[in-house]
Design a protein around this nucleic acid. Sequence first.
DNA 1: GGCTTTCGCTACGAGTCGTAGCGTAATGCC
DNA 2: GGCATTACGCTACGACTCGTAGCGAAAGCC
Lengths: 207, 207
Amino acid sequence: MVGCMHSRSPAVRSGRPRSAEADTAILAATREALVELGWSKLTLGDVATRAGVAKTTLYRRWAGKNELVVDAVAELFDALELPDCGSLAADIEGVVLQFAAILALPEARSGLMAVVAEATRDEVLRERIRASVVDRQKRLVLEGRARAQARGELPAEEDPESAARTVDLIFDMVAGAVVHRTLVSAEPADEEWVRSFTRVLLQGLGS
Amino acid sequence: MVGCMHSRSPAVRSGRPRSAEADTAILAATREALVELGWSKLTLGDVATRAGVAKTTLYRRWAGKNELVVDAVAELFDALELPDCGSLAADIEGVVLQFAAILALPEARSGLMAVVAEATRDEVLRERIRASVVDRQKRLVLEGRARAQARGELPAEEDPESAARTVDLIFDMVAGAVVHRTLVSAEPADEEWVRSFTRVLLQGLGS
DNA sequence: GGCTTTCGCTACGAGTCGTAGCGTAATGCC
DNA sequence: GGCATTACGCTACGACTCGTAGCGAAAGCC
């Protein structure tokens, strides 16, 4: 779960509490509608009907379609885990395959790119995506990198600023390549592709 | 230009010819509307007004918003050229910087990702994007690779099938990383970043 | 001049948007 | 139990966009 984003004072709140079932039902209905209709034909009225709630309830909780879809899609990526396979190459292959499996879901494919596109013109939305999707998963790079350095597979960087830049670069290269392969080239990121990708990432094009 | 896509028989066509100025005006108006309004708020009626043509003229030439924006954005990428800087690393840095400059344009940012998102549910649209954007620019990878192999910087592959897979992989890695850096991480792909990226791409993470 | 196709314009029904208003349900506090 | 407070479901609304149809005029080829 992403957590309630409208709780200004999470302490005392008299009155009827918001239905937690409604939240999960709405997000599930959003993903269902994304699968059947895609982003552009998805309407909030339709999502409300699917979820069994009133349309006004939706507007009370989310500012619009963008925010709703971000929350609905973000939940999908929480399943990502970094396996410990003994080597950096195997770890990368494992997590990339998981990432590819999520991007193979139609609800992720249609929703993710659409909100990213909208975010190019909406600073607040971009921050929401960063917080609930990007930064949440950057932990995988940090963890894998630390493990590899402990194993001696990667050189340790002392300068923390330079290390942060490297982490960002790796994240952009990994996530970008898988997204581009899956959504733009529209080819499956299968085991063979992942192996080739990991080889280039670790050893470069020259070898 | 992408070329007329409705000419079933390009030979004899009696009657009043379609205005070429209208085509360029419409595509320019589309990019202008993308900058000011973004994808979701762009309407075909608005584009028609900006271009100084009737709304019906738009619908006679394009099936819908998706197809129109693909053509409008595709023109932006035709400016890409592969510089000959003497080394593979310098060539890559040059072309990636050009690519990043295009992605920095607001009309490219908002439009490109949106149509890619729509293409996840539209086979015909996906093919249109592949033909007018992706495959058109894959030539850069082919050319740069051939040059580098002639220089001895890259090993030559005999198997043409394996070579094609490598070209696709490189394209996904380069384009994906730049797109992710620019649109998702929302950080500029400046010279420093491009240098780091090229270094990892050519030599891998280990060095 | 005839034929063909495009163009600009107007008008239309259908559908979605986001909001307002109202009565009811569910909680905390006294 | 009574009260204040908040969330909920429902209905209705004006505003907007959609994609299409119909018309007369314009611009080319023969």
